[in-house]
């Protein structure tokens, strides 16, 4: 019998129609449970919402003040996290220093730290009597606690690790071949970072920023501990907490407002940015 091996191979790409969106059923069941688990509390809130008294509760000017402060401080915290966190993420992903893994664990510590503990730590560092804060206070008479700046600092402290972890992963996964290509085309390191590396991880930058913003918007523990509660520092979560002390209906109403605003912002961002995955 002659064993004949054909070596000529078909080189034309075979056009397979991909079955998109058809999910193997073993995945479908846990996915459905997950949806149920995540959505039922939200639905429950909608069901129990004091719809008739809603306008009365929301007409309260402190609610609008709290909402404005929440959006403003969460956005400021996101900008701060981006400006400081993206370079940090780059360093953690690319630098080859000894002890970097320890540093990585340390800077992402706020992820596991109870936020109230984070707030206490911030007080010990940046409070009027803090390690750093005392020098600033003695020099300028300014102390971060009980100010809007304090809110931004607390939110940044808690939310920045979310951005750093997301972006670091993207830097790590990014194909460094493109950076090499840019180098051979005469681009300086800074140009490569700006024109190649950053755009390549664009979707992760957006995802990390959104995550960071969402975390900052919901921040309660560190903020109440570090920045306290006064008209300059009362964000929505604090307003919700206090409302819950006396009037559960008001708490639900405020929570709905916070949810609605978050959903609008996140959906708008998703449509604009997140839908387009990484090109290529």
């Amino acid at each position: 019998m002659v064993r004949v091996v054909r070596v000529e191979r078909s080189t034309g790409s075979i056009d397979r129609t991909r079955e998109r969106g058809t999910m193997p059923w073993p995945l479908g069941i846990p996915a459905a449970v997950a949806v149920f688990f995540l959505l039922v509390p939200l639905v429950a809130m909608l069901v129990r919402a004091p719809w008739s008294g809603l306008t009365r509760i929301l007409a309260n000017s402190t609610v609008l003040d709290a909402l404005r402060l929440s959006l403003l401080s969460a956005s400021a915290a996101t900008v701060a996290s981006f400006v400081l966190g993206v370079p940090l993420a780059w360093m953690l992903a690319r630098a080859r220093w000894r002890g970097l893994s320890v540093l990585r664990a340390l800077v992402t510590l706020p992820l596991v730290l109870p936020p109230v503990v984070g707030g206490v730590a911030l007080l010990l560092a940046f409070g009027r009597n803090g390690v750093v804060g005392k020098a600033i206070y003695d020099w300028t008479g300014f102390a971060l606690p009980f100010t809007t700046w304090g809110v931004v600092v607390a939110e940044t402290f808690v939310a920045m690790p979310f951005l750093v972890v997301t972006v670091e992963g993207a830097f790590r996964a990014a194909d460094q071949g493109f950076e090499e290509a840019a180098a051979t085309l005469g681009a300086s390191r800074m140009t490569i970072f700006r024109r190649v590396t950053l755009p390549l991880i664009g979707p992760s930058l957006v995802a990390g920023s959104v995550l960071c913003w969402a975390r900052a918007l919901g921040e309660f523990g560190a903020t109440i501990t570090f920045a306290g509660n006064n008209p300059d520092t009362q964000t929505m979560p604090i307003a919700v907490y206090l409302a819950n002390e006396s009037d559960t209906d008001a708490a639900i109403a405020l929570s709905l407002v916070l949810l609605l605003v978050s959903v609008v912002v996140l959906v708008a961002l998703r449509d604009r940015w997140l839908r387009q995955g990484p090109a290529l």
Partner: peptide, 16 residues
């Protein structure tokens, strides 16, 4: 400057 959510918040403000 602070209307703490509970008395422990006030205590913390003083002790720090």
């Amino acid at each position: 400057v602070d209307r703490a959510v509970d008395v422990n918040g006030v205590v913390k403000d003083v002790t720090t």
